[in-house]
Design a protein around this nucleic acid. Sequence first.
DNA 1: AACCAACGGTTCAAATAATGAACCACTTGC
DNA 2: GCAAGTGGTTCATTATTTGAACCGTTGGTT
Lengths: 259, 259
Amino acid sequence: MGTVSKALKLLSYFAPDRTEVGLSDLTRLSGMNKATVYRLMGELQESGFVEQSENDRAYRLGPQVLHLAALREASTPILSVSRRVLRELSDETGETTHVSLGHETHVQTLSHAYSPSHATKVTMEDAQTVTYHATSSGLAILAYADPEFVEQVLAQPLKAHTSMTLVDPDEIRAKLAAIRETGLSDTLGSFELEVHSHAVPIFGADRRAIGALAVAAPASRMSPEQQETIRAALRRAGAALTHRIGGSPPADYPQNIPA
Amino acid sequence: MGTVSKALKLLSYFAPDRTEVGLSDLTRLSGMNKATVYRLMGELQESGFVEQSENDRAYRLGPQVLHLAALREASTPILSVSRRVLRELSDETGETTHVSLGHETHVQTLSHAYSPSHATKVTMEDAQTVTYHATSSGLAILAYADPEFVEQVLAQPLKAHTSMTLVDPDEIRAKLAAIRETGLSDTLGSFELEVHSHAVPIFGADRRAIGALAVAAPASRMSPEQQETIRAALRRAGAALTHRIGGSPPADYPQNIPA
DNA sequence: AACCAACGGTTCAAATAATGAACCACTTGC
DNA sequence: GCAAGTGGTTCATTATTTGAACCGTTGGTT
């Protein structure tokens, strides 16, 4: 692993529940030498990727990441576009919605929206890291990913988040095939019990799945009618989001599924 | 310069008008060896900071920057908060508004809002890089920056963007002192002719200026009354933004300026 | 069709930068 | 006043980065 990768890996230890990290923590988390971490963080700081708290000297992400994100948005505006799509989808379905992006080994939630319709709802945090195999979003992405990428994901240890999580690679492959039939994935309690989640893949300009759009609802509220509402709304919203970021679904993506 | 800094410097060549850059371009822009650029970009790609176009192999910023920005927003939500502040300020003043962040050698616009009030307005792009000395935002930040930082900025060559740009360090120092009197900066045509811009600094938790909030209007529309409206609105909005990101103005910041 | 220039990508000995054990100064809790 | 934690620093050893020259392709010109 090159020096640059090591430095960037240090950035990955920031998380929603750990927005500030000290030098010693980073050293432990990364397993690198303290002097190395210190120097790398110093370089990251010079470039504005992290900044240091005045009093306790803990590191936090710096303003430079906002700048780069603004630039990325200028070319591929998935965030700003998805915000509106999420808002509409939440209003339409009355449930919590979110978009996620597929990464090398995991899926990251990017943005979410709540609906005021119900007092009980699935709550979310942005920038959460979740697994491919246990989430409807992750499975939706996998269903339209390169087969070798799927195998790479399935070759890793698959954690059983709940008793409902699919951890058998063969079962997951079957599930992915089923998802490809409809273009829509759903999981019941496989990441968190009592949560019934539906998702559709979002495609980039190269017709590959780059992320997913999802609706998460309490299982208790998931009547067959509600499920049909969600599936229809999700299909429309997903197609809209894919289109508005300049992407296109692959030729074999089920376009017009009759009710 | 360490390897990490070199890699991160490569990211700085992305701009609103150059969202995709090829290997040879990066080599020329950075002055580094092609093999070096290739390897560094490869590492940036592995970490998801950039991705490569399928057809022409040009690099563009990757999804990882969005993830980090979402995290940064979770701890210091300047972007999401500023969006609302900008909206209100634009509605109130009828003009274009924007927030910028101060960096080592330059200022970067982060987000902006337009007003529908007038057909003619100042147009903006997010993630633009501008100079400290020629913009009201930059001067507002400098007025509340460390004196040594000010000298560092003034020691660089100061480009005359227009005939109105202040380029004499002494004149700029005088201007900064004047800004400190009122806590508000304005420039007329110093970055672009015919644009009259007002700005207030935004302070972080450590009471240092981290950025600026600005209103940019066509000079022709800037009557004394309109100017007073803008100054008052800007003062309020700036205080609100500083407060809502968890920051505080320094003790010597003029708080309640009578009209 | 032959040419040329520019592109992305690759190689490997030489040069340079990264590394890590041990260190210091400081703060916190007992 | 001790012990254990913190952030920060040093410097000989080591491993990585570097860059000139290379290859294969592509697209435009003669």
